[in-house]
Simulated scan of single mutants.
Amino acid sequence: MTDFAVLDLVPVREGSDVSAAIRQAGDLAQVAEQAGYKRFWVAEHHASDGIAAGATSVVISHIGHVTSTIRVGAGGIMLPNHNPFVIAEQFGALDALFPGRVDLGLGRAPGSAPIIGQALRKDLARASEYFPQDVVELRALFTGDLELPIKATPGFGAKVEMWMLGSSLFGAQLAAQLGLPYAFASHFAPRHLDEALRTYRENFRPSTQLEQPRVMAAMSVLAAETDAEAETLASSQDQAFVRLRSGDPGKLPPPLPGYRDSLPATAQAMLESLDVARAVGSPATVREAIGRFIERTQADEIIVSGATFDPAAREESLRLTMEALGN
Score class of each variant (00 low, 15 high):
T2I: 14
F4H: 04
F4M: 06
A5M: 11
A5C: 10
L7H: 03
A21D: 00
I22A: 03
D27F: 13
D27Y: 02
A29E: 06
Q30S: 11
K38Q: 04
R39D: 02
H46P: 12
S48L: 15
I51L: 13
I51S: 01
A52C: 00
V59L: 05
I60N: 02
I60S: 02
H62V: 04
I63D: 00
H65I: 00
V66K: 11
V66P: 08
T67V: 07
T67F: 06
T67G: 02
T69S: 14
I70P: 01
V72Y: 01
A74M: 04
A74S: 14
L79T: 00
N83Q: 04
I87L: 08
A88G: 08
E89K: 13
F91L: 05
L94G: 07
D95A: 14
F98T: 08
G105R: 03
G105W: 01
L106A: 04
G111T: 08
A113N: 10
I116R: 05
Q118T: 14
K122C: 12
K122V: 14
D123E: 07
L124T: 11
A127P: 09
S128D: 09
E129N: 07
Q133N: 12
D134Q: 14
R139V: 05
G144T: 04
E147D: 15
P149L: 01
I150V: 15
K159D: 15
M162F: 05
W163F: 11
L169Y: 13
F170N: 09
F170V: 10
G171K: 12
L174E: 10
L180T: 07
Y182L: 09
A183K: 06
S186I: 12
H187P: 13
F188I: 14
P190A: 12
R191Y: 11
R191I: 04
H192E: 14
H192R: 15
T199E: 13
N203V: 07
N203Q: 15
S207I: 02
L210I: 00
A218I: 03
A218K: 10
S220M: 11
A224P: 02
E225P: 05
T226G: 13
T226K: 11
A234D: 04
G250I: 06
P255D: 09
P257N: 07
G258Y: 06
R260G: 03
R260N: 05
A269W: 05
M270R: 13
E272P: 07
S273I: 01
V276Y: 10
A277C: 10
A279R: 11
G281S: 08
G281K: 03
A284H: 14
V286C: 09
R287P: 06
F293Q: 01
I294Y: 03
A299E: 10
A299K: 11
D300L: 12
E301A: 13
I302E: 02
V304R: 06
T308V: 14
D310T: 06
R314L: 13
R319L: 12
R319A: 02
M322G: 08
E323Q: 09
G326I: 05
